[in-house]
Amino acid sequence: MYLKQRIINSVLPNPQTLTIIVSLLATLGVLLELLGGIWDASSHAVRAPEQFWSIQHVAVYFGVSTVAASSILGFLMLHKKIIIGKSKTAIKIIILGSILQIAAGYGDSVSHDLFGIDGLISWSHQPLELGLVLSSIGGYLLLSHRKNDFFKKLVPVSIFTVLMSSCWLAFSLSLFVSAIPVCTLVYEIFSSGCAVL
């Protein structure tokens, strides 16, 4: 048993390095999702044909996969009890965000299959956006506790992902109360409109 633990410890990077990897994957995954979402919105502006497996959506899914890899690594760290304190809470937030994104992504796929193209408000989009916010917050919390100067330089990127994902969710939630005036303004961009499923 002792030999097995020594081998595992010699193969795995130290907890500090693993924590940095988790935070980078979470932050960069959310950033990729946001950029893919903007790319998708711009394709709506030029009225490009919409499919669930479009290149824009694949960029978003790759971001989701990156966040999922971050949460799996974080889960393993929690399971092996090699992380403590505030970092433990941050990893739990990333894991929750990742679960929401994966479940909502699957729900979005089912929604597209059953109902076709949906609008900005759907039963799957808002949980996905909440997952984005949670994952970005977890990534920020992990990065902000690092002492290394290189990783301190990435904190503004992390802050950007928190702000952008929060704005995205806030805009979507605002459509519940102001759908007609706001949707009229953005209808030309999102040619599918702001339909509510």
Results as ranks from 00 to 15, higher is better:
residue 20 I to Q: 00
residue 135 S to I: 08
residue 143 L to P: 06
residue 11 V to P: 01
residue 174 S to Y: 07
residue 193 G to V: 11
residue 5 Q to G: 02
residue 142 L to Y: 02
residue 30 V to R: 10
residue 55 I to M: 14
residue 97 G to C: 03
residue 44 H to N: 11
residue 48 A to P: 03
residue 30 V to M: 10
residue 158 S to M: 09
residue 61 Y to N: 08
residue 114 L to Y: 09
residue 163 L to G: 12
residue 129 E to K: 02
residue 82 I to D: 01
residue 128 L to G: 15
residue 30 V to E: 12
residue 45 A to F: 15
residue 54 S to Y: 06
residue 179 A to F: 00
residue 30 V to P: 11
residue 11 V to D: 01
residue 100 L to A: 08
residue 11 V to G: 00
residue 131 G to S: 04
residue 127 P to F: 02
residue 42 S to M: 15
residue 126 Q to K: 06
residue 9 N to C: 00
residue 158 S to P: 07
residue 115 F to S: 12
residue 158 S to W: 10
residue 161 T to C: 12
residue 46 V to N: 11
residue 57 H to W: 02
residue 9 N to E: 13
residue 108 D to W: 07
residue 30 V to A: 14
residue 51 Q to G: 14
residue 134 L to M: 13
residue 184 T to A: 13
residue 69 A to T: 08
residue 76 L to F: 02
residue 149 D to Q: 12
residue 41 A to M: 12
residue 51 Q to M: 11
residue 190 F to G: 00
residue 76 L to G: 06
residue 114 L to E: 12
residue 97 G to A: 04
residue 134 L to R: 05
residue 188 E to H: 10
residue 25 L to E: 06
residue 59 A to D: 02
residue 188 E to W: 08
residue 24 L to D: 02
residue 163 L to H: 03
residue 35 L to W: 13
residue 144 S to G: 08
residue 44 H to T: 10
residue 115 F to V: 07
residue 102 I to D: 06
residue 120 L to Y: 03
residue 82 I to F: 04
residue 161 T to H: 03
residue 94 I to V: 14
residue 19 T to V: 01
residue 66 T to S: 13
residue 117 I to S: 10
residue 146 R to A: 01
residue 6 R to N: 04
residue 94 I to M: 03
residue 64 V to M: 13
residue 101 Q to R: 06
residue 85 G to A: 06
residue 61 Y to Q: 12
residue 93 I to E: 06
residue 116 G to W: 09
residue 46 V to G: 10
residue 16 Q to R: 14
residue 180 I to D: 15
residue 123 W to Q: 14
residue 63 G to D: 07
